[in-house]
Design a protein around this nucleic acid. Structure first.
Length: 603
RNA sequence: GGGGUCGUAGCUCAGUCGGUUAGAGCGUCGGCCUGUCACGCCGAAGGUCGCGAGUUCGAGUCUCGUCGGCCCCGCCA
C-alpha cells in the first residue's frame, strides 16, 4: 500500500517548535511541528496522532474544522511515518487534558500536513514500557534509540560531559588529543592490534589508555591536561565492560594526591548536581585499601550499607573444627535477623560462594538458648564466647563464615555481603555513596606468571621509603594510587607518577623487566624523564560506568549508543567481518582459516 | 577456557507424561467509527518451534552437536 503513497518534500516549511514545547500559554498561535507518528487513533471523521521527536509528544488532530482535505489524506498515516504538520494550538475540550503529558493541555488543529516519509512496521514497538529482546534491540539500534527512556540516558550523558568540560576548562585544563594508533606494550590488558600496510609484519595497538602520552604532555609543560577519550581492551565483556569505552583522562603537574583527589571530587560532585540534580556528600569519605579489605573483602566497597566482615581467625585458631583450625584467614559476617533464611536459601548462597572458589559455606543460626548449625558442635565454650564477643551475636541472627586462603575468603565473603545486602533490602534505592580508597599495595603477586606485577601500572610512584621495600617486602610496599568507588563500582583511579628516571628504572627492575626490555618497550619514556620531568599525577574516570550508575541502568550498553554483544560483535553492522584478499595482501597477512574455495590466499 | 540461562507467529510469551490440525495477547491487513490518548467494535492473514544429526511408530517436547542473546568465573596493569 505504501507504493501508492506519494511523499511530500519539506519545501519551505520550517519547524516552529519541538514536540515537547507547547503549553496552554501557546493557545492561539500557528505552529509547525515535525516528527514521527507515535500513536494513531483514527475515529473515521476525526484522527488523533501523537507526534514524537526527542523532546516529547504532542497530540495533533485531523478534523474538518482544521481541514477536510488534510483529514481525508490522513487516513493512510501509520506508526513511525515522518510528518510535518501545520496548525493552530488549541485547548483540549473540558476534561480531556492528558495529565501524563507535559503538552497535555493543548493539541494542534491540523490545517495542512506533509508526509515526509513512510516507515515499515517496526520489528518491535517503540515504547518505553515494552521490552524487546536485546538481540533485536541491538540489530535495530537506531529504532531502539527512539525510545524516550533510552534516549534520556544519552541526554544525561551529554549533560555530564558538558559539566565536566566546563569545570576543567574553568580550572585551566587543556584538552589534547593523543594517538589512537600507538605502540603495543603487552603489560596489562590484551591489545587490539592494527596491522601496518607501510611496515608489513608490524602492528599498531589501540590505546588501553593514553597513560604514557599524558605523562609526556606533562613533560611538555602542558601542566593541566584532560581528554574525553576512547580506550580499547581486548578482554571478555561483562554487563559493565565493553571492549571500547570512554575515559575522562586527567593529568596535572606540580601536585600531590590531595590536590588531585580534591579536584576530581569536586568535578564528580558538580557533575552529579548539574547533570542530574543529585547532591553528593560535601566531603567524600576515605578508606585505606587495607581497611576496605578488612571490612568489606573487596577493594571497591559498597558503603551504602553496613554488614561488615569480621576477622575471627585467632578466635578459632586450633579449633576442633578442622576447617577453621589452621586456615590462613577465617572471617564471619553477621546478618541481624538473618535467621529467617530457609535451608534452600542457605544452599543457594553456598552455591553462590563456590563461584568465587569457596569449598562451602559455614553458618550458625542464633536461636533462643541454642545455636543451630552444621558445625557448632565442634566449637568449645571459649570459642563460642569468642565469636559472640567478636561478632556481637544476638538471637535471630545468622552468621556466615569462610575459612581458607585470604584472597578467597575476602572475595567470597565480599560478594556474599553484596548478595545479602540485596536479599535483606539493605541497599537504599537512589542513593549514591562515593568513597576514596587509598594506600594500595604497589605490587600484586601473579601466581600464573610466578612474579610480582604492578597493581595499578608500572609508572605509579611508591610512597616515600617504599621503593626500598620492593626488594625485602614486595607485598608490603605501598603506592601513591587512589581509586574512587561509587556504590561498589570502581569509577575512577589514578596515582602520582614516577617522574625521575632512576626510580622508574628501579620499578621496572622490581617488576622483572630487564633494562634491555625496559629500553625496548619504554625507552621513549625513560629518555623523556632525562629532560626535566615535573612531579605529576592524575586520574581517569570510566565515563560509561559513571553514567550507567547515575542513570540507574543495569548495563553499560544502555549508555553506549552502539554497543557490542558479549561476543564483541556489532549486530547492527555485523562487525567484525571478513575482508578481501586484496586488503590482506597489502597488509602482508595470510590467514590460516580462510576458506580456500572462496578466496585464494595471498602469497 | 569454564559455569548458568534463554531461543516457538512481526513482538512478548504459553505449550502438561513424547501423541490428532502448535495456542494467547499485542501488532499487521481489511471494514466501521467525531473526543481519543496503548481509542473502540467486526473480520482476516500470519509458524523452517534457531540450525543439524540421533532415539522413537511418532519430537516444539528426549539425547548429542552447533549458532546466537544474556548473567557470571577466569581475564580486565
Amino acid at each position: 500500500m505504501s507504493e501508492s503513497i506519494t511523499l511530500d518534500s519539506l519545501g519551505d516549511w520550517r519547524r516552529s517548535h519541538d514536540c515537547g514545547a507547547l503549553r496552554a500559554s501557546d493557545i492561539g498561535s500557528d505552529v509547525c511541528l515535525m516528527g514521527w507518528a507515535q500513536f494513531r487513533r483514527d475515529h473515521g471523521g476525526l484522527i488523533f496522532i501523537d507526534l514524537r521527536d526527542r523532546a516529547g509528544l504532542t497530540q495533533v488532530v485531523f478534523c474538518p474544522e482544521g481541514s477536510e482535505e488534510a483529514l481525508d489524506r490522513a487516513h493512510v498515516l501509520r506508526v513511525e511515518y515522518v510528518l510535518a504538520i501545520r496548525g493552530r494550538v488549541r485547548p483540549r475540550p473540558e476534561g480531556m487534558a492528558n495529565p501524563n503529558l507535559p503538552t497535555g493541555e493543548v493539541e494542534i488543529e491540523v490545517t495542512d500536513f506533509r508526509l515526509l516519509n513512510t516507515a515499515a512496521t517496526p520489528p518491535f514497538p517503540i515504547e518505553d514500557r515494552i521490552d524487546a529482546s536485546e538481540m533485536l534491540r541491538l540489530k535495530y539500534r537506531y529504532l531502539d534509540l527512539r525510545r524516550p527512556k533510552l534516549a534520556a540516558n544519552f541526554k544525561l550523558r551529554h549533560r555530564a560531559v558538558q559539566s565536566i568540560r566546563r569545570y576543567l576548562d574553568e580550572l585551566g585544563f587543556l584538552e589534547v588529543e593523543t594517538p589512537v594508533l600507538t605502540k603495543s606494550t603487552p603489560e596489562g590488558a590484551r591489545d587490539f592490534l592494527v596491522p601496518s600496510r607501510l611496515s608489513n609484519g608490524a602492528f599498531y595497538a589501540l590505546p588501553q589508555s593514553p597513560q604514557l602520552f599524558k605523562q609526556l604532555l606533562m613533560m611538555s609543560g602542558f601542566d593541566r591536561y584532560y581528554q574525553v577519550v576512547k580506550c580499547f581492551r581486548d578482554e571478555d565483556l561483562r554487563a559493565d565492560r565493553q571492549p571500547e569505552f570512554t575515559q575522562v583522562d586527567i593529568e596535572m603537574s606540580f601536585v600531590d594526591e590531595e590536590q588531585i583527589m580534591n579536584m576530581a571530587e569536586t568535578m564528580v560532585r558538580r557533575m552529579f548536581h548539574e547533570a542530574a540534580g543529585v547532591a553528593l556528600p560535601a566531603v567524600f569519605p576515605r578508606m585505606t585499601f587495607a581497611d576496605a579489605m578488612r571490612d568489606y573483602g573487596l577493594d571497591k566497597p559498597d558503603i551504602r550499607f553496613d554488614l561488615k566482615l569480621v576477622d575471627v581467625t585467632e578466635v578459632v585458631r586450633g579449633s576442633q573444627f578442622q576447617v577453621f583450625a589452621k586456615a590462613e584467614l577465617v572471617k564471619g559476617i553477621r546478618v541481624p535477623g538473618g535467621g529467617v533464611l530457609s535451608r534452600k536459601e542457605i544452599d543457594d548462597l553456598t552455591e553462590f560462594v563456590k563461584i568465587y572458589g569457596a569449598k562451602g559455606l559455614a553458618w550458625i543460626k542464633i536461636k533462643e538458648g541454642e545455636w543451630q548449625s552444621p558445625f557448632a558442635k565442634f566449637l568449645s565454650d571459649a570459642e563460642r564466647q569468642g565469636l559472640v564477643d567478636a561478632l556481637g551475636l544476638s538471637v535471630g541472627d545468622i552468621v556466615f563464615f569462610q575459612a581458607g586462603p585470604a584472597d578467597m575468603v575476602n572475595t567470597a565473603l565480599g560478594y556474599l555481603r553484596l548478595q545479602l545486602g540485596e536479599r535483606f533490602g539493605l541497599i537504599p534505592e537512589g542513593t549514591f555513596a562515593p568513597v576514596w580508597v587509598t594506600d594500595f599495595p604497589l605490587l600484586e603477586y601473579d601466581p600464573e606468571g610466578k612474579r610480582w606485577a604492578a597493581r595499578h601500572h608500572p609508572f605509579t610512584a611508591p610512597q616515600p621509603g617504599n621503593i626500598e621495600r620492593l626488594a625485602t617486602d614486595p607485598a608490603g610496599a605501598l603506592s601513591r594510587a587512589y581509586d574512587l568507588v561509587l556504590n561498589g563500582s570502581e569509577i575512577g583511579g589514578g596515582s602520582i607518577r614516577i617522574h625521575d628516571r632512576e626510580t622508574q628504572k628501579a620499578m621496572f627492575a622490581a617488576l622483572g623487566i630487564g633494562s634491555e626490555e625496559a629500553e625496548d618497550k619504554f625507552g621513549f619514556l625513560l629518555k623523556a624523564l632525562e629532560y626535566g620531568a615535573p612531579p605529576h599525577g592524575g586520574i581517569a574516570f570510566g565515563l560509561d560506568r559513571l553514567i550507567m550508575i547515575l542513570a540507574g541502568a543495569k548495563s553499560i550498553r544502555d549508555v553506549i549508543a552502539f554497543p557490542k554483544t558479549q561476543k564483541a560483535m556489532c549486530l547492527l553492522t555485523d562487525a567484525p567481518n571478513e575482508v578481501s584478499s586484496t586488503q590482506l595482501r597489502e597488509l602482508g597477512i595470510k590467514l590460516r582459516t580462510r576458506d580456500k574455495e572462496k578466496d585464494k590466499p595471498a602469497t
